[in-house]
Design a protein around this nucleic acid. Structure first.
Length: 277
DNA sequence: CCCTGCCTGCTG
DNA sequence: CAGCAGGCAGGG
């Protein structure tokens, strides 16, 4: 579910609907999802605060408040953030609800309960959520486009496979298992290649395929708030456009060879043995 | 580097 | 029923 394109989709759908609204009440069913600070400080930090914006860093969402405080959250594997009418039937596994002054509720549900929330006080440095440890933002690395030189500098001496490197959040933020496979397929690079074996032209290809694929899948996810709600926030419509992920054994969309599956760094990886060198 | 734990649900 | 799932932290 949520890698950079999905998290960005959630941000785009929700931000216009919640910006300017005030959290009037918080209902917490599963206190363990609050990672920091205490449940009491979290609650007093967010209740009665007016939301100024919703931003994204890697796979994290950051709800900013007008007083300078912020609520950071990570959806992990199965987390889902949904804005619903107050009377709307509740999703199973709803762990926290925020009643807004619009009459709507912002609800977080998460089957596997891996998702976490943090509250950061106004002016405080966030050294808690892990955001501070993230690497460059592939769609906006300090306003500069991603370059071959930059990728080579970060990964060029690593022995690890290029796929594991792309998923290293402390180097490059937001890419998970699905989009690592998709990017490497688009770049014609075999996921098990050690990063240090990549040639200059391969770094070059990656430097533009990474943002190109991420933007493509964000665009394919484009959804109205109504459709997002009726799909319960789980209707990621870009999945029909995935070329290799989840398609092991099926023909490569380019050369028709059977796609291979292999475990790399503990993660299932799918690639074309013919197109990806 | 690999392994485990954290959870529930779905697939074969 | 075992095995697997798009994430990450922590341990050896």
């Amino acid at each position: 579910m949520p890698e950079l394109p999905e998290v960005e989709t959630v941000r785009r759908v929700l931000e216009p609907q919640i910006a300017g609204r005030t959290i009037e009440k918080m209902t917490l069913r599963r206190p363990e999802i609050i990672a920091h600070p205490s449940v009491d400080l979290f609650s007093s930090g967010v209740v009665n605060q007016t939301i100024s914006g919703l931003s994204r860093r890697g796979k994290f969402l950051v709800m900013e408040f007008r007083n300078g405080g912020r609520m950071v959250l990570h959806l992990r594997m199965t987390g889902c953030l949904l804005l619903t009418p107050a009377e709307y039937p509740e999703e199973k596994h709803t762990h926290i609800l925020f009643a807004l002054n619009s009459g709507s509720e912002l609800r977080f549900s998460d089957v596997r309960r891996f998702g976490r929330f943090w509250y950061i006080f106004p002016g405080e440095q966030d050294t808690f959520s892990g955001i501070h440890k993230l690497g460059i933002e592939p769609l906006n690395p300090c306003g500069e486009p991603l370059t071959a030189a930059c990728l080579k500098k970060i990964f060029g001496r690593r022995k690890k496979t290029i796929k594991e490197c792309l998923m290293d959040q402390s180097a490059l933020a937001g890419i998970g298992n699905i989009y690592a496979d998709e990017i490497l397929f688009a770049a014609g690079i075999c996921p098990r290649r050690p990063a240090r074996s990549l040639r200059q032209r391969e770094w070059k290809t990656l430097s533009w395929k990474i943002p190109e694929r991420l933007r493509y899948f964000i665009d394919k996810n484009d959804i109205t708030p109504g459709d997002y709600l009726s799909g319960r926030g789980r209707d990621y419509r870009n999945t029909p456009f995935l070329q290799v992920y989840g398609r092991a054994g099926l023909p490569c969309p380019v050369c028709r060879s059977a796609l291979c599956r292999e475990v790399l760094g503990g993660r299932s990886s799918v690639f074309c043995p013919n197109c990806q060198k």
